[in-house]
Amino acid sequence: MISIIDYEGGNLTSVKRAVNYLGFEAEITQDRRVIEESDRIIFPGVGAAGASMDVLRKTGLDQIVRDQVIERKKPFLAICIGIQILFEWSEEDDAECLGFLKGKVRRFPDHGPNGPIKIPQIGWNQLHQVREHPLYENVANPSDVYFVNSFYCEPEDPGVTIGETEYGLRFTCAVAKENIVATQFHLEKSGPIGLRMLKNFCRNENWT
C-alpha cells in the first residue's frame, strides 16, 4: 500500500486516482500507523510553502515523514509543492522547510533572455533528463510534462538534479537522492508519460 500524505493541499484525489488507475492501492492519510505500515510514500500537493509547512508542523507529520524517509529510507516521491518543501528554505512566505535536501527555493525572475515571462508557468514544458534514474524507465528524453509553478528549486548539490527545464532560465525540475525522488511537474496530470513515471515509482523494487 502507498500512503499519500494529506497536508491539506489540493490535488490529493487526482494523485490517488492516478495510482489506483495504475493498479496500486493508495490511501490519503495523516495517520502515523498507516504511514508506517505503507511500502511507499507520496507527498503531493498544490499550495503555498508557508501554509503547507504550518500544517505539517501542526499535525506532527513533519516528524513522521522525516522518520520514514530519512531514518527508515522508505521510497518517497514528492510532487509540485512537495519538491519545494524538501529544501531548507523557500522565498515563498519566507518559509523554513523540511531540509531533507540542501538548497533554496526561488521565485521565477520577471524577465528572461527573450523578454518578460509569465508567472506562474502554466502548461506543458520539456523535461530534460540530465542523469539516469529508475523514474525514467521507458520515458523519452526530452518529454513534455505539465507544470504549474511560480517558484523553482535551487539545490546546493548539483548532483541531486536529475531533470531540468527552461523557463526564463534553466531550472531543476526533478531531483533524486537515495530513496527520495521529487518532481516539480505534475506526474498525475502529464498524460501517459506522467503515468509511466508514476508507475515506475510504484512498482520498482530496486528504487534506491
Binding site: 484525489t13 487526482s14 486516482r17 488507475y21 505539465y146 498525475e188 496530470k189 501517459p192 506522467g194
Partner: peptide, 8 residues
C-alpha cells in the same frame, strides 16, 4: 472524468 483522464 478524473478516473480515466490524466491531463488538467
Amino acid at each position: 472524468t478524473a478516473e480515466s483522464i490524466f491531463i488538467p
